[in-house]
Simulated scan of single mutants.
Amino acid sequence: MTSNDELPDCFGDLEKVFPMGPNGLRETPEQCFYHCPVKTNCLQQAMATKNGIQVEEEVIERSSKAGAISFFERWSRKKQAYRRGLKMKK
């Protein structure tokens, strides 16, 4: 990982590194996906924010509606996301 002085201005900014695409799903921009040496850490940082938890909950809901996860898995994953959100408030 590079030092904080070397990080791009967009580092960890959810709306810049994982914006909503035209089809209603979030997408990683091409410049991030192919050309950024810190893309993985950047996206992890963005998803560790309060807005990132909301995105995770959106994914859980879509998966549930599509039948990709069971009721209990949905409940468990939402509970984990909720707990991460509580930790951020402390």
Rank of each mutant, 00 (worst) to 15 (best):
V38T: 03
K65Y: 07
G12V: 04
I53K: 11
G67W: 07
R74A: 11
E30L: 08
T49D: 05
E6C: 07
N41R: 07
G24C: 05
K89Q: 07
K39S: 01
P19Q: 01
S76Y: 14
V55I: 11
L25T: 08
M1W: 11
E6S: 13
F11E: 00
G52I: 02
G85R: 05
N41T: 04
E15A: 08
N23G: 08
Q44C: 09
L86A: 10
P8T: 05
G67C: 08
N51C: 07
K65A: 13
Y82V: 06
E30T: 05
N41A: 12
S76L: 14
K39F: 03
P19S: 01
S63E: 13
D9C: 10
F11G: 01
R62G: 14
R74L: 06
A46E: 02
C10R: 06
K65W: 05
E6L: 12
W75P: 12
T40N: 04
P29K: 00
K50F: 08
T49S: 09
T28W: 09
C32V: 03
P19I: 00
S70G: 15
S63W: 11
Q44V: 09
I60N: 05
E73T: 13
I69E: 10
V17D: 01
D13F: 06
P22A: 09
A66W: 09
E56H: 11
I53L: 14
L86E: 14
G24N: 04
E73R: 13
T40K: 08
F71K: 15
A48P: 02
K89W: 03
K50Y: 07
Q45V: 03
R62A: 15
V59K: 07
K50D: 09
C36F: 02
G21Y: 06
F71D: 15
R83F: 12
M88W: 00
G67R: 09
A66I: 05
N51R: 12
F71Q: 15
M1H: 12
T49F: 01
Q45D: 02
S64Y: 15
N51D: 13
M1P: 11
E58G: 07
K50S: 10
N4V: 11
I69H: 06
K39P: 00
D9W: 09
Y34I: 06
A81G: 07
M47S: 09
G12C: 04
H35I: 05
